[in-house]
Amino acid sequence: MRALIQRVTQASVEVDGALVGQTGPGLMILICAMEGDEDAKARQMAAKIAKLRIFQDDAGKMNLSLRDTGGSALVVSQFTLAADTRSGNRPGFSTAAPPGEGERLYHLFTEALRNEGIACETGRFGASMQVALVNDGPVTIWLDV
């Protein structure tokens, strides 16, 4: 699995002008299931993100996790994280999981994150979404598991 996480003060996602998910202070998580990913990868990614120490403590050091801060997450499926841009000018996405498997793993990841004690909302798999966020820091981290 592949994720792009951003520490945010707020984030939201709309579909057809309607709000479908939002978070206050916490994380915006763009997630992509890759071809060959299995359930264990989704659970491993959720555990890693829940414990990742990227929030500031009282001394101003990135020493706290999302669990520690009580923050929440907005999880949005983004198959374009699988983009292969090594040749030509048009990205290829053949390394992304097939849509049915990608959706299943997306939901499994979200449930695993909730099982880690993280409140989360989601976008809508496969929909054209408008995402808004305020990146805090800015802190943006790429993760592969």
Rank of each mutant, 00 (worst) to 15 (best):
V134S: 05
A119M: 11
I49F: 07
L4N: 15
M129S: 14
L74A: 07
G26H: 11
R43M: 12
E35T: 06
E101P: 05
L143A: 13
A83E: 13
M34R: 06
P138V: 09
M34E: 13
I29V: 15
W142M: 12
A3Y: 05
R7S: 13
P25S: 15
T95V: 08
V139Q: 13
L66Y: 00
L64Y: 02
F79C: 14
G24F: 03
G60E: 06
F109G: 12
L30T: 05
Q130M: 11
L143S: 03
V75R: 00
A50M: 04
A40W: 03
T80G: 14
C32W: 07
L27T: 06
A127N: 07
G123S: 09
L74R: 02
V134T: 08
M34P: 01
K51H: 11
L52K: 12
K61D: 13
A3S: 15
A47N: 03
T85F: 10
T85S: 13
R7P: 01
G123F: 07
L66R: 01
A46W: 08
K61T: 02
P25E: 15
R7C: 04
R90S: 10
D58Y: 02
K41E: 15
Y106M: 06
R90I: 04
F125V: 06
F55V: 01
G137K: 04
L64P: 01
A46N: 09
G21H: 00
A97I: 00
I31H: 07
Q22R: 14
Q6S: 12
A119K: 11
G17L: 09
L19G: 03
I141P: 03
A46E: 10
D68S: 06
A33I: 05
P25A: 15
F109A: 10
S128L: 08
A97Q: 10
A50V: 01
F93P: 00
G92R: 07
M28F: 15
F79N: 13
L81A: 10
Q56W: 00
R43T: 11
N135E: 06
C32S: 14
P138K: 11
G21F: 00
L113H: 07
G60D: 02
A59E: 13
E38L: 06
A132H: 09
R114L: 03
L143H: 03
G100L: 09
E116G: 09
K61Y: 03
R90Y: 05
A46C: 10
Q130G: 05
D144F: 01
E103C: 10
T110N: 10
G88F: 04
G137P: 01
T140M: 09
T9N: 15
G88C: 02
T9A: 11
V15Q: 14
M129A: 14
A59M: 03
F79Q: 12
I118K: 12
A73G: 04
K51V: 03
E35H: 11
T23Q: 14
R86P: 00
R124S: 13
R114T: 09
S77V: 00
L64N: 03
N135P: 00
S77N: 04
S87P: 00
T23F: 14
L66C: 00
I29R: 13
G17R: 12
M62V: 01
A47Q: 11
M62T: 02
N89T: 04
E35D: 14
